[in-house]
Each structure stands twice: as structure tokens, then as C-alpha cells.
């Protein structure tokens, strides 16, 4: 039983379905069996009081497009890597830049930024004036500092 919060047509003419994040895996499984074999894009949007995650699904054979939206208050969303392999890098990217934790992801590391980077740049409260410096310690691991120090 999947509970749909809202169903509408977006400005670009695509069907949008809003679901609670508890039902996300169930509805995605259902859609995949209906022929939506291509997970095109995962987007995280910072709505200040909550995070919104948007999934663009595509049915290649019948050429149908579907947008699934879900919201989270605690930065946590179930991972879709068990259903779509393309979710792997997309979820890592959204974790890296937006700070959404995808529960059940096998390798949830930062994709673009160094592992020790402080903060998630696409958040609206991210301080752009602060400059970060990435250094390397004896073991080859990186760490971030906020003052230039030696070597910079």
C-alpha cells in the first residue's frame, strides 16, 4: 500500500508524484516493474526548513517520463542503489554537495570534494566567504584548515 500525497502536472508538462519517504522504495519497485528502467537524475533541493529530493524516472520503451518528489526533515532518505546502479554516483554527489544521507548506500563517500571538506556547498546557509585549505598528513590522509599556514 503506497500513499501518494499529491499528484500534479508540472510546468514542463511532466507528471509529478509526491510521496512520503517511507514509501519511496515501495513505489520505485512498483514503477520499475512497470517499465521505468532508467533513473535519469537525482536532485536535492534545500528548502531551508527541509530538504527535498526529486527523482526523474524514464521509461525508454514507451517513452514516458515521471517525476517523484519526497521530503525529509532529518537529512535522511533511503538509497535506491539496490534498484538502479545509476543512483550510486548521483547519491554520492548529492551527499557531497547537499548533505543528504542516503541510508543503505554501499559506499557513501564524497565524490567531488576532498573527504575532509567542512560543510556542503549547495546548502543555502553555506558560508562562501570562508576559504578552506586542504593539507595532507604523514599517513596520506587529508585534513582541512581555515588559516593558510605553511605551504599555502
Amino acid at each position: 500500500m503506497v500513499e501518494v500525497i499529491e499528484e500534479s502536472i508540472g510546468k514542463d508538462g511532466r507528471k509529478v508524484i509526491k510521496v512520503a519517504k517511507e514509501y519511496l522504495i515501495a513505489i520505485m519497485k512498483d514503477l520499475k516493474s512497470q517499465g521505468y528502467d532508467h533513473l535519469s537524475l537525482i536532485t536535492g533541493i534545500d528548502r531551508k526548513d527541509k530538504l527535498e529530493v526529486v527523482y526523474h524516472l524514464h521509461n525508454m520503451k514507451e517513452d514516458k517520463y515521471l517525476v517523484i518528489k519526497t521530503e525529509t526533515l532529518d537529512e535522511r532518505v533511503p538509497s535506491l542503489t539496490s534498484l538502479y546502479s545509476s543512483a550510486n554516483w548521483d547519491e554520492r554527489e548529492q551527499y557531497d554537495l547537499m548533505g543528504i544521507v542516503f541510508e543503505g548506500h554501499p559506499n557513501l563517500k564524497r565524490l567531488f570534494l576532498p573527504e575532509s571538506w567542512v560543510g556542503h556547498p549547495l546548502r543555502k546557509n553555506y558560508d562562501l566567504s570562508k576559504v578552506q585549505y586542504i593539507n595532507m598528513d604523514e599517513n596520506g590522509d587529508d585534513y582541512a584548515t581555515f588559516d593558510p599556514g605553511d605551504g599555502w
Binding site: G10, K11, D12, R14, L41, H56
Partner: peptide
């Protein structure tokens, strides 16, 4: 206002822009 997803065929494949 609102959100739009547009896809185009670039020389590499599906290039999509999702604008909110």
C-alpha cells in the same frame, strides 16, 4: 517561478537541466 526539466541531445547524450 516553479520548476522545469528540459532535456536536449548534446553530442555526448542526454543533457538535462532542472531549473527551480
Amino acid at each position: 517561478d516553479g520548476d522545469v526539466y528540459a532535456r536536449t541531445e548534446s553530442s555526448k547524450g542526454e543533457f538535462g537541466v532542472y531549473l527551480v
